[in-house]
Design a protein around this nucleic acid. Sequence first.
DNA 1: ACTTTCGTAGAGACCGTTTTCTATCCGGCT
DNA 2: AGCCGGATAGAAAACGGTCTCTACGAAAGT
Lengths: 357, 357
Amino acid sequence: MARRDEHRPNTIRDVAARAGVSVSTVSRVMAGDYPVAQATRLRVQRAIKELNYVANTHARALVAGSTQTVAFIVNDVRGPAFAAAVHGAEHEAARRGRLCLVCTTEGDPARELAAIHLMREQRASAVILIGGAVDEPAYHTRMAEIARSLDAAGSRLVLCGRPPIGADMPVTVVEYDNEAGAYAATAHLLSRGHRRILFLGGGPPGFTTTAGRLAGYRRALEDNGVPVDPELIETKVQFSRASGYEHTRRWLSSGPPFTAIFAETDIVAGGAMAAIFEAGLSVPEDISLVGYDDIPLATDLRPQLTTVRVPYEELGRSAVRLALELKEGRASSGSEQHAVFGTHVVVRQSVAPPALQ
Amino acid sequence: MARRDEHRPNTIRDVAARAGVSVSTVSRVMAGDYPVAQATRLRVQRAIKELNYVANTHARALVAGSTQTVAFIVNDVRGPAFAAAVHGAEHEAARRGRLCLVCTTEGDPARELAAIHLMREQRASAVILIGGAVDEPAYHTRMAEIARSLDAAGSRLVLCGRPPIGADMPVTVVEYDNEAGAYAATAHLLSRGHRRILFLGGGPPGFTTTAGRLAGYRRALEDNGVPVDPELIETKVQFSRASGYEHTRRWLSSGPPFTAIFAETDIVAGGAMAAIFEAGLSVPEDISLVGYDDIPLATDLRPQLTTVRVPYEELGRSAVRLALELKEGRASSGSEQHAVFGTHVVVRQSVAPPALQ
DNA sequence: ACTTTCGTAGAGACCGTTTTCTATCCGGCT
DNA sequence: AGCCGGATAGAAAACGGTCTCTACGAAAGT
């Protein structure tokens, strides 16, 4: 009956009563911005300690109108690349005394939408979308609408590792030079003498990450006078080890010949490497291999994987830094913020000149 | 001047005004639990859509007294094992319409404490601590105090992959059988004929994960009549690839002989494997190797790593399931909940009988 | 001695919801 | 005709803080 009372957390009123002061005074002691007599302050602090009092964030947020919270929406926390970005963002957020909400979408645009709605309800300072997107025609308008409605609710939309949606939107974009990385990786293979390079990529159709990496691959070939052979472009690979393994096996047994593989992802490269060894071939003597992302796995593979370094942690950190600086600074929040981070090839052991055929 | 007005999100009052009804009616339309005339409902719904209205979670939480939020406190989201647990937990939470707050501590007990305090302010439904802890004398009393104060604030403390703190505490414990896994892994090596098995572990002194795994290692040796050689127990290894590599190198070059390594972690095993190859030896012909955790890396190594399977994802899932079911069900919240998941050896390719010396 | 100022503390409005508790309209019943 | 109850809608009181305004001594200035 009186059960409810048992579990009622202490409120500021309880503290005030115990200390024999008004709630205003307690509030002021906690905020510390208003003069309170030393004796009173001590009395209040003792009461707080005795009652084990913590202020109710929601009551605070209600009057403040916004929250000390940063929200991430991510495909899958288990992806090492995303994990690094989340880590960087979380670190920066914590440094600034913010809390982090994390939501995963499993790549489902509908769930992404639902997550954004939820975050809008939360009045988070910033909503950070991490990872590529499906670039359908509706994508830009949908994102623009989201950007505006988040802006209206006092939140900032941040696109992290995802292309801009058009200028003059209230959006912060933190990208890495996706295409340049793919260009560099492909150029690296070309410079070692490879001409028939298998592109192993995929994801959902229209996925921006794939599109950018494929574009870099193409441009590198063209710039070096190597004709792009559509037969060597595989875009049905899921972003998993198993899928990379499976497709590589298929290509080795029944595809056209090639001397190198450019895998869209280190994880896919891991699967590819396993398939190559299983076929009795070796890396890099028989087949060279490059990946993309430079996740920890790259150095655990044997031979260590040559790959493209993406500063995911820095990306995450900048995402929250830019968004929060904007909110703290003058409110020029109508305009777009845009940062692009560089990518570069990390040369390890998985690339060698092709064997003489 | 009127700048503040520009960014004021729409409130329920705005919707009410636009629809020409009272705020109560709008609230009821949103809740859907009270009869509202069809015509009125449609009018309100249109107003909501037109104003792009979302309810303020904080106002809701304030009157409800608690939040639809589950909080995780984790060492590092980048750790694949933790990531899996967080993923499982997040999945289960999302399934139940909860949001997830994530906080990382980088293994610092002080930051863990700060994080818990923050979560207490949030009035989260559950606060889940993931990963081992330092088992100093103060640990139990500190945790007990935290458990009680969270309980008083209406939250449930969940210890995930961390030992119980004593019965009759308002705590939910979700463990895996840490020692049994280590026992099984060591027994596996013994059954293949190994007698001199190097234990590579560490973490901060008194770390429960290390303690459990070391205990399993010891017990397996004893049960099989193999004397425990303190010389073969290394407990200064950090949980990183680099540390595993470094220590293995040192042991290979200047330590007593051994034919197998039991690494406390797959990541450490990865480093160990690299060091072994670098020394011109091979796995498992010259040295057998087992890890612990069964993270994705284990199958990417060559040879694939024999390791101990820990159902991290299931652990995370159960953590939120148990905590939330408790809150939804009858409030027998005073008692301790306890679940223990099994572990088992996953046999892959990194173990073979020792070479004849 | 009277006003001014400073330091300190309290009262009360407000933030945006939910949730009683009432109020009204209306058809159906006695 | 008068009363009752169901359907629907509004008014107002929480929820737990912050913050502006006001109050009131005491010290200081004239």
